[in-house]
Amino acid sequence: MHADTTVTSKKAAAVAAFAGLDSEPGVAKPDPILVIEKVVRRFGGLTAVDVDHVEVQRGSITALIGPNGAGKTTFFNQLTGFDTADEGSWSFNGKQLKGVPAHRVARSGMVRTFQLTKALSKLTVMENMRLGAQNQRGENFFRALIPGSWRGQEDEITERAEELLERFKLAAKRDDFAGSLSGGQRKLLEMARALMVGPELVMLDEPMAGVNPALTQSLLGHVKDLREQGMTVLFVEHDMDMVRDISDWVIVMAQGTVIAEGPPDTIMSDNRVIDAYLGAHHDAPMSVEEAEEQLQEAEAELEAEIEEKA
């Protein structure tokens, strides 16, 4: 993390890294933090994920989009160890992660959030935050029995958690049960808690789902802020405005495979993407004759109805 970098330079650096890259699926990035090779996941006869090659650029915000059922969340689960892939391999910072259990993936610096927020309801907001900290001495059974051995570390963790809560505007809720927070606040808490782990790569599964529009801007700000702090973000999202607003690079999935990649301002007009969202045989704009014909049909129908009533 470089303290002297400004907001614009991080964004500019991320955009510059992508300059001149092909919009082809699996294009090589200059400095990938995550490299995925031939990941396949089948559920019986259904191939949910079949990704040939994808790289995620370090220090960027990468969006993973695709129509419903494209396998985005399944793909997320594979990468973070919450589900086992049938085939393939992927490396994070050069370290192979296939078959590594979820908690070890998190420890290695790749932390995820969930589509359905998992705030731990009966723990307070502060306890939720403290839980995120790594290498806690007091989490060992025997050392837990000697409060003196973990009190000092706990104070440091609390201080760090307070700073984060302040940043995420949850400081006032510090001692409330997480279950009493609103949907948007829970999303914020989950993100803040993930940051307590000290991740290099933050994986957000639909960060905007179920968040009230007033909170959206603040959440967007926080996601951008992650990049400014030197973290890499990979997120799944349906909200195209958000994708356009914050992402530096977009990966498009459909039916389990990556069909296109590219910068957000051009990817939306890519034919492969339009086909994936609307179907290959979607309606072309109507010609004048077709419009006329439809109008006449509708009028005839209306007249028939009127006569019937009369």
């Binding site: 919450f82 259990p101 979820a102 908690h103 998190a106 959030t113 969930f114 705030a119 731990l120 839980l131």
Partner: peptide, 9 residues
């Protein structure tokens, strides 16, 4: 799952 995602065994 939330606990797993925070690096606890």
């Amino acid at each position: 799952d939330a606990v797993r995602s925070l690096g606890k065994n």
